[in-house]
């Protein structure tokens, strides 16, 4: 199952899994920033930077013994969300276009350089997904929350994330059972016809479950916050990894500029 695959990979004995979660979260954020801001302008320099970051991600995945097929496959499954935004870069709508499809006083035309911009946006989105998925595949979710709590992310938000992570799959299982029950009683019902009612039922059940969980917490003496932010041990090796990875990331971002890439 999807969740088991992710959890199994996060607990696997890869070398990346042993790194301090704060280091991995920090490096993921740095990589995402490098992807976002390092390739925002058109030109070969941006593409070289993206290629360098892709190589860095591939090396990291190899270091963590991440199953390549699934890592890449799952990342592609999330890509259609970015496709819609990329498609918008292909066209320009407004007055003053000589050729195109007239729309009232405006014209829909092909955006100059839109193809390259759309492709670059897709590449950035894909690399961002790969980087985030790599973090999920090499770090157990509670450890990610521990790292985020050290970064002073609000506790309320982290508690909500922890409970969503715990109960999302319970909810999905319930949803599947409801869908199956409906199918068995009414033949093939298209999801768009049954979806609303199932969501309403799931919402009602979730409310009831939330109440029971709240009572369970009270009965076990809950006094405020959930325990997030366990003891994390930063080792000398982690400091070395931090220096090395920062240098590699900086090289991936800066090398194309000094290498004479056209900007």
């Amino acid at each position: 199952m999807h969740r088991e695959w992710i959890d199994r990979s996060a607990h696997a004995p890869g070398r990346l899994q042993a790194w301090d979660p704060r280091l991995k979260v920090g490096l993921t954020v740095a990589t995402l920033l490098a992807i976002s801001f390092g390739a925002s302008s058109p030109g070969a320099e941006s593409w070289l930077r993206l290629a360098a970051l892709a190589i860095a991600l591939a090396l990291a995945a190899r270091h963590g013994r991440v199953p390549w097929g699934r890592w890449l496959g799952r990342s592609l499954a999330l890509l259609p969300f970015a496709l819609a935004i990329a498609a918008a870069k292909l066209v320009a709508i407004g007055p003053g276009h000589a050729t195109g499809i007239p729309l009232g006083g405006w014209t829909i035309a092909a955006a100059p350089g839109g193809g390259e911009e759309a492709l670059r946006l897709l590449a950035r989105a894909w690399l961002s997904i790969l980087a985030t998925l790599l973090l999920a595949l090499t770090t157990p979710f509670p450890a990610i929350l521990d790292a985020l709590s050290r970064a002073r992310i609000p506790r309320g938000f982290l508690e909500a994330c922890s409970l969503v992570h715990r109960y999302l799959w319970v909810l999905i299982e319930e949803g599947r059972r409801l869908l199956l029950a409906r199918r068995l009683r009414s033949g093939r019902v298209p999801p768009w016809r049954s979806g609303g009612r199932i969501l309403a039922t799931l919402f009602a059940r979730s409310l009831a479950r939330a109440h029971r969980i709240e009572v369970a917490m009270r009965l076990r003496g809950r006094r405020g916050a959930l325990p997030i932010g366990r003891r994390l041990a930063w080792s000398g090796r982690d400091s070395l990894r931090l220096i090395l990875c920062t240098a590699l990331l900086a090289a991936a971002v800066l090398a194309p500029r000094f290498g004479g890439g056209a900007g």
Partner: peptide, 8 residues
């Protein structure tokens, strides 16, 4: 399920 609300 109602009682096991923490990750591990």
């Amino acid at each position: 399920e109602d009682q096991l609300f923490l990750p591990t």
